[in-house]
Amino acid sequence: MIATHHIFILSALLLSVGVFMLLTKRNAILILMGLELILNAANLNLIAFNQRYADALAGEAMAVFVIVLAVCEAAVGVAIILQAYRHYATAVPDQISELKDPA
């Protein structure tokens, strides 16, 4: 059995990679993938905490939920990216700056 704190370290690494991707990647798809990594890091934590309570399945169940949520999120995110791509002819969020104050 792997020690819980090892799993936590892996999860933190995974989160860091995700955040790094989220903040640095120029392509929206890669940013979305970074987001998936963050979610997976969270899933890993959920499962790791569940090890302590062997008779309960709450952690695993929550992880399944998160996976489903991630799928939905990925679907919606990709759809938005596709639409944005179609509209702006780019998938780079930096070039889509309509939220910005025009001044």
């Binding site: 989220l22 969020p93 939220l99």
Partner: peptide
């Protein structure tokens, strides 16, 4: 507020 999502995220 520079309109860049990633800076918002950062």
């Amino acid at each position: 507020v520079n309109g860049k999502i990633q800076s918002y995220l950062a």
